[in-house]
Design a protein around this nucleic acid. Structure first.
Lengths: 148, 148
DNA sequence: GTTGACTTTAGACTTAACTCTAAGGTTTAT
DNA sequence: ATAAACCTTAGAGTTAAGTCTAAAGTCAAC
């Protein structure tokens, strides 16, 4: 096994986060370096690198660190119990991720409308905002019911 | 024109946020009720409702309030200047949205692998974590990206 | 014409997620 | 063998995004 080991500064640079952030993730149980030198220096492995990468991606798309740590803690083993638990939790997350993807698409669409409204066409386009663009593309917002 | 006007409590209920949150958005320039009663009560219009809806969607998919307020401030008019500016800004945002959508898909994929590893197949699946699932589905990790 | 459910403001407090500081120990290059 | 460039900890400070409190004004109803 070629054991990649990085010191905190090296991982920080690779992942483009601060050393403080890495220590902060450790303190909150998201990222434990799997070794320490005799002097107490943290040593990170390849798996740790992937973990950081995952944390950052997940954060970028709107998961909180708490949610991320739940995701990272997920582990399917053939124990019936954990199997059921994991499936439950994960299936719920899939739904929320799907919803977010939909929201993102809506937003992307309206950004595109906005961009096109601009230098795209010979259209009049005297005036266009993102809300108008969004509106033009879909007609759902909050569900409105009896608000008098 | 049927002028829908909602008082703060009504909008809060409709949008499922607190009244404090609505006032907070106002203080930060994201949401100005377009009328006030003589007594100073805020009155929100249909457009304001859409605005809240947009703010919440955008927030959910990882935009900060600052970014959202930039998006909301965008306005294409046939003034050459604004046209260029808007296109620039928006096109950059489209790229980041596209990236986030990709991240989301990756995460969704691995959540699905995780769910399936569980009760899905006759596979061995003695053990599976989200990182392994993620790994199985794609082989890119950190590297570039950026914007901070 | 007062009660109760609404609204207003200003300002203090909270939480998440960092970010910085101080005071020191370790490693490496010269 | 010492300076520069790393690393350690504990704890304080910051920023974003709310959330809560207090003291007071307003509105509908009984």
């Amino acid at each position: 096994m070629n054991q990649v080991t990085l010191k905190i500064g090296e991982l920080a640079k690779l992942a483009q986060v601060s050393q403080d952030t890495l220590r902060f993730y450790e303190k909150h149980g998201l990222l434990m370096p799997h070794l320490r030198t005799d002097a107490g220096y943290r040593l990170y492995s390849e798996a740790d690198v992937q973990r950081v990468s995952f944390i950052l991606s997940a954060k970028q798309v709107g998961f909180t660190l708490n949610e991320i740590s739940e995701l990272l803690a997920l582990e399917v083993t053939k124990d019936e119990k954990s199997c059921e638990d994991v499936k439950c939790f994960v299936d719920a997350k899939i739904v929320t991720v799907q919803q977010r993807i939909r929201e993102m698409r809506r937003i992307k669409q309206s950004l595109q409308s906005l961009s096109e409204a601009c230098c795209g066409g010979a259209e009049p386009a005297t005036h266009c905002t993102i809300l108008e663009a969004l509106n033009a593309h879909s007609e759902d917002g909050l569900q409105q019911s009896g608000a008098r």
